[in-house]
Amino acid sequence: MSLLEIRNLGIHFHTENGVVEAVKGISIKLEKGETLAIVGESGSGKSVTGLALTRLLPEPPARYVSGEILLDGRDVLKMKGDELRKLRGKRIAYVFQEPSTSLNPVFTIRSQIAEALKLHRPEVKDLDAEIIKCLDLVGITNPAQRLHDYPHQLSGGMQQRVMIAMALACQPDLLVADEPTTALDVTIQAQIMDQFRDLRSKLHMAVILITHNFGIISNFADKVAVMFRGKIVEYGPTAEVLRNPQHAYTKALIQCIPRLGARQHRLVTIDHAALEAAS
């Protein structure tokens, strides 16, 4: 049985300006320890898909109109509140894009990580020791001194490491990282991606990496799903998709990756009108 299987998932938002069809019948399969990248432009439904895995979308306005999300064969969309809460953080954990706003500004690092531990791992007696272990794992130097810091006392890269430590504290089977490096500067981005790679193999986690940057996935993801306007237009092993893209949109995205040393004088842009006509 796969760790995660999404079948024909459809999600609508009922807003004042009408119905937004954010996700239109997508299917994805993910095995234990595997890494999937979901790539696509802004508004294509990547984040909505990620949040749907534990039903984190606010309902209303969100509505799950079709399909199922099977985690170890059990449908998340049929679960009750209590079961869902046991899933969140414990089996599926998240790292979000903006660490500075995703951490609660008025609680210390310690209390925010401890909250997850108390919920899902009540057997942990020495919280401080466990939290220090987590912070150490994500490469925070002097973790013991950081425990009582507030988020604003840390740099953006450090904040994101804290987010990762918090996500890993309960040893999830699947980590959903939604543009985890977009808000960080380039050198820190590379460090954080290395950290993910390292942790993934250490902890045998499956990872879903959501990004609009094709460049960072080639040596990171086993599989890639390309999303365009709420649909998956291309899905397959990363190397294959990169070598031989089928869909016009994927080709355009791959062309957009700026290559070092390439004789390119202008950045390639995507012609939406042409794509629209094609699909």
Partner: peptide, 15 residues
């Protein structure tokens, strides 16, 4: 509506 609320929910904290 703040992001930290979503983080807390994603950790499994109840409403």
């Amino acid at each position: 509506a703040q992001d930290y609320v979503r983080t807390a929910q994603a950790k499994g904290v109840s409403g």
